[in-house]
């Protein structure tokens, strides 16, 4: 009897956490999913049907996918380069990279988006500079289009990709690289045969993390896209708060969440929950 009592005590002590999760997450979530079934014409899958068929919604989803895939690939490539120098560079290089990676964490995404707008817009820093050096005659279209959004998002996401890649590089003994070179492999050969396979889990983790983040981008596309590059998060916002089309917004949220959860599960499966925690800390 004593053990039964003890296990009941343990159970009841652990109760607040699941209760909180149910109240704060699962219930509202169920509410959102319920909304997604309600259409102006009654209960049903109308919203989901609209998502699959409405050319506007489809084009926004495709644009989101296109931008997110491109941004993810570019961010991870840049992050690998930075993480490599953070791991193997001279102390001086390490310091520069570390500062460059950490400072953006302290700036809000809104400030960063506007800063990029100052640089990229038609009469911004970049165009003024290029025109004054005579390299271009007409200003380049760097902002208020997908390019501007991608630049802003990449800048935001690179630091998040650096950390998991750096962590996986950190686990690689420098002597493995030296060994490959002593055995006759040049830099790129050693990179391909030794460094790349041994850091692949970090790269994959970074890819998934950055992709998940990028799906939810809201401020950066709104500012740097100038209303012309609407991505799914902004579209959901428009549906729910500007057009009061709650059903469609909720259905899009639901789909987005399923995608994110699936990617999270893949991430945990690839990297292992323990490594993920290590990487995060």
């Amino acid at each position: 009897m004593a053990t039964r009592d003890a296990s009941w005590l343990g159970f009841s002590l652990a109760l607040p956490l699941p209760t909180l999760l149910v109240l704060a997450y699962l219930l509202p979530l169920a509410g959102v999913l319920a909304w997604s079934m309600s259409t102006p014409g009654g209960i049903g899958f109308g919203n989901y049907r609209q998502i699959a068929t409405d050319p506007l919604v489809v084009s926004i989803l495709l644009r989101t996918l296109r931008i997110c895939v491109a941004v993810t690939l570019i961010s991870v490539a840049i992050a690998y380069f930075l993480a490599y120098h953070l791991r193997f560079g001279s102390p001086w290089k390490k310091r520069v990279v570390l500062i460059g990676v950490l400072i953006p964490f302290w700036l809000s995404s809104l400030i960063r988006a506007f800063a990029w707008l100052m640089i990229l817009r038609a009469n911004g820093l970049a165009n003024t500079f290029l025109q004054s050096t005579g390299m271009i005659a007409e200003p380049l279209a760097l902002a208020r289009n997908e390019l501007g959004v991608m630049i802003g998002m990449t800048h935001f996401l690179v630091p998040y990709a650096v950390l998991p890649i750096f962590s996986s590089l950190q686990h690689i003994d420098n002597r493995l690289i030296q060994a490959s070179r002593s055995l006759g492999a040049g830099f790129w050969r050693g990179f391909k045969d030794i460094l790349a396979p041994l850091s692949s889990s970090g790269v994959l983790a970074a890819t998934i993390i950055v992709f998940i983040f990028s799906l939810g981008f809201f401020v950066t596309p709104a500012v740097l896209g100038g209303g012309r590059v609407v991505m799914v998060a902004e579209y959901i916002y428009l549906q729910m708060f500007q057009l009061s089309n709650w059903g469609l917004g909720a259905a899009l949220s639901g789909i987005l969440m399923v995608v994110v959860v699936a990617l999270m599960l893949a991430l945990i499966k690839i990297v292992g929950i323990r490594r993920l925690m290590d990487t995060a800390s």
Binding site: L176, Q178, S182, G184
Partner: peptide, 20 residues
């Protein structure tokens, strides 16, 4: 001359075998 062009064998402390 870079290490890969010297063609010397090296046995490292801790062996440095490729784990994969």
């Amino acid at each position: 001359l870079s290490p890969e062009k010297r063609g010397f064998g090296v046995v490292f402390q801790g062996y440095a075998l490729f784990p994969h």
